[in-house]
Design a protein around this nucleic acid. Structure first.
Length: 137
DNA sequence: GCCAACGTTGGC
DNA sequence: GCCAACGTTGGC
Protein backbone atom coordinates (compact mmCIF):
# COMPACT_ATOMS: atom_id res chain seq x y z
CA UNK A 1 0.00 0.00 0.00
CA UNK A 2 1.10 3.52 -0.73
CA UNK A 3 2.69 5.45 2.04
CA UNK A 4 0.23 7.38 4.13
CA UNK A 5 0.42 10.37 6.38
CA UNK A 6 -0.85 10.78 9.90
CA UNK A 7 -0.98 13.23 12.73
CA UNK A 8 -0.61 12.13 16.31
CA UNK A 9 -1.29 14.32 19.27
CA UNK A 10 0.29 14.14 22.62
CA UNK A 11 0.40 16.34 25.64
CA UNK A 12 4.07 17.16 26.11
CA UNK A 13 3.56 16.78 29.86
CA UNK A 14 2.74 13.12 29.35
CA UNK A 15 4.84 12.23 26.33
CA UNK A 16 6.40 14.87 24.14
CA UNK A 17 8.75 15.03 21.19
CA UNK A 18 11.73 15.23 23.53
CA UNK A 19 10.70 11.98 25.17
CA UNK A 20 10.46 10.27 21.80
CA UNK A 21 13.92 11.49 20.82
CA UNK A 22 15.35 10.42 24.15
CA UNK A 23 13.96 6.91 23.81
CA UNK A 24 14.82 6.58 20.14
CA UNK A 25 11.65 4.61 19.55
CA UNK A 26 8.28 5.13 21.20
CA UNK A 27 5.23 2.94 21.53
CA UNK A 28 1.96 4.71 20.81
CA UNK A 29 -0.43 3.03 23.17
CA UNK A 30 -3.23 3.94 25.51
CA UNK A 31 -5.55 4.98 22.69
CA UNK A 32 -9.13 4.28 23.76
CA UNK A 33 -11.07 5.86 20.98
CA UNK A 34 -12.39 3.76 18.14
CA UNK A 35 -11.75 6.21 15.37
CA UNK A 36 -8.21 6.73 16.53
CA UNK A 37 -7.73 3.00 17.02
CA UNK A 38 -8.91 2.33 13.48
CA UNK A 39 -6.33 4.75 12.23
CA UNK A 40 -3.66 2.97 14.25
CA UNK A 41 -4.66 -0.32 12.63
CA UNK A 42 -4.40 1.23 9.18
CA UNK A 43 -0.83 2.36 9.68
CA UNK A 44 2.02 0.58 8.02
CA UNK A 45 5.73 0.55 8.62
CA UNK A 46 7.27 3.54 6.87
CA UNK A 47 4.22 5.79 7.11
CA UNK A 48 5.07 9.37 8.03
CA UNK A 49 3.64 11.04 11.11
CA UNK A 50 3.40 14.62 12.24
CA UNK A 51 3.97 14.88 15.96
CA UNK A 52 1.64 17.46 17.48
CA UNK A 53 1.81 18.93 20.96
CA UNK A 54 -1.63 19.59 22.38
CA UNK A 55 -2.39 21.98 25.20
CA UNK A 56 1.15 23.19 25.62
CA UNK A 57 2.30 24.82 22.41
CA UNK A 58 -0.53 23.53 20.21
CA UNK A 59 1.80 23.03 17.32
CA UNK A 60 3.26 20.38 15.08
CA UNK A 61 6.86 20.01 16.18
CA UNK A 62 8.38 17.16 14.25
CA UNK A 63 8.14 14.24 11.89
CA UNK A 64 8.23 10.62 12.95
CA UNK A 65 7.99 7.37 11.05
CA UNK A 66 6.12 4.20 11.87
CA UNK A 67 8.68 1.56 12.74
CA UNK A 68 6.36 -1.25 13.85
CA UNK A 69 2.69 -1.46 12.94
CA UNK A 70 -0.24 -3.61 13.92
CA UNK A 71 0.74 -4.61 17.42
CA UNK A 72 -1.55 -5.02 20.41
CA UNK A 73 -1.57 -2.30 23.02
CA UNK A 74 0.74 -3.48 25.81
CA UNK A 75 -1.19 -1.36 28.30
CA UNK A 76 -4.46 -3.18 27.52
CA UNK A 77 -4.97 -6.38 29.53
CA UNK A 78 -7.42 -7.69 26.93
CA UNK A 79 -5.09 -6.88 24.04
CA UNK A 80 -8.04 -5.64 22.06
CA UNK A 81 -6.73 -2.18 21.34
CA UNK A 82 -4.10 -1.44 18.75
CA UNK A 83 -0.76 0.26 19.07
CA UNK A 84 2.20 1.10 16.87
CA UNK A 85 5.82 2.03 17.38
CA UNK A 86 7.41 5.07 15.87
CA UNK A 87 10.80 6.67 15.55
CA UNK A 88 11.67 10.34 15.35
CA UNK A 89 12.83 11.46 11.91
CA UNK A 90 13.51 15.14 12.30
CA UNK A 91 12.25 18.35 13.78
CA UNK A 92 10.36 20.69 11.53
CA UNK A 93 12.33 23.72 10.39
CA UNK A 94 10.05 25.50 12.78
CA UNK A 95 6.83 24.40 14.51
CA UNK A 96 3.55 24.91 12.69
CA UNK A 97 0.93 26.15 15.09
CA UNK A 98 -2.73 25.31 15.21
CA UNK A 99 -3.40 28.96 14.56
CA UNK A 100 -1.53 28.80 11.27
CA UNK A 101 -3.35 25.64 10.27
CA UNK A 102 -6.71 27.25 10.94
CA UNK A 103 -5.66 30.35 9.04
CA UNK A 104 -4.84 28.32 5.96
CA UNK A 105 -7.78 27.55 3.68
CA UNK A 106 -6.20 24.38 2.36
CA UNK A 107 -5.90 23.01 5.89
CA UNK A 108 -9.07 24.33 7.49
CA UNK A 109 -10.97 21.04 7.25
CA UNK A 110 -8.32 18.73 8.52
CA UNK A 111 -9.58 16.27 11.09
CA UNK A 112 -7.30 17.98 13.55
CA UNK A 113 -9.41 21.12 13.22
CA UNK A 114 -12.83 19.54 12.84
CA UNK A 115 -12.44 16.85 15.46
CA UNK A 116 -10.25 18.50 17.99
CA UNK A 117 -10.46 15.58 20.36
CA UNK A 118 -9.30 12.93 17.94
CA UNK A 119 -5.80 11.95 18.96
CA UNK A 120 -4.80 10.17 15.76
CA UNK A 121 -5.94 11.47 12.40
CA UNK A 122 -5.10 10.88 8.77
CA UNK A 123 -3.59 13.63 6.62
CA UNK A 124 -3.76 13.83 2.85
CA UNK A 125 -0.52 14.19 0.88
CA UNK A 126 -1.61 17.68 -0.13
CA UNK A 127 -2.11 18.69 3.47
CA UNK A 128 1.18 17.11 4.44
CA UNK A 129 3.07 19.07 1.79
CA UNK A 130 1.25 22.26 2.67
CA UNK A 131 2.24 21.98 6.31
CA UNK A 132 5.83 21.28 5.33
CA UNK A 133 5.87 24.35 3.12
CA UNK A 134 4.55 26.50 5.96
CA UNK A 135 7.29 25.28 8.26
CA UNK A 136 9.93 26.00 5.67
CA UNK A 137 8.59 29.37 4.57
C1' DG B 1 -32.66 0.62 20.41
C1' DC B 2 -33.30 5.44 21.79
C1' DC B 3 -31.92 9.33 24.27
C1' DA B 4 -30.61 12.09 28.26
C1' DA B 5 -26.96 12.63 31.56
C1' DC B 6 -22.41 12.61 32.49
C1' DG B 7 -17.26 12.56 31.95
C1' DT B 8 -13.22 13.76 29.27
C1' DT B 9 -10.54 16.27 26.10
C1' DG B 10 -8.68 20.25 24.30
C1' DG B 11 -9.02 25.07 22.57
C1' DC B 12 -9.58 29.59 24.14
C1' DG C 1 -11.45 28.49 34.44
C1' DC C 2 -14.89 28.03 30.96
C1' DC C 3 -17.14 25.93 27.31
C1' DA C 4 -17.93 23.11 23.12
C1' DA C 5 -17.53 18.64 21.04
C1' DC C 6 -17.70 14.06 21.42
C1' DG C 7 -17.93 9.30 23.48
C1' DT C 8 -19.96 6.38 26.87
C1' DT C 9 -23.24 4.89 30.08
C1' DG C 10 -27.54 3.66 31.88
C1' DG C 11 -32.62 4.02 32.27
C1' DC C 12 -36.54 3.06 29.82
Amino acid sequence: MAKRYWLMKSEPDAYGWDDLVKEGEGTWDGVRNHKAANNLRSMEKGDQVFFYHSNIGREIVGIAEISVSGIADPSDPDQKWAAVKLKPVRLLARPVTLKEIKACDALADMELVRLSRLSVSEISPDEWNKILSISEA
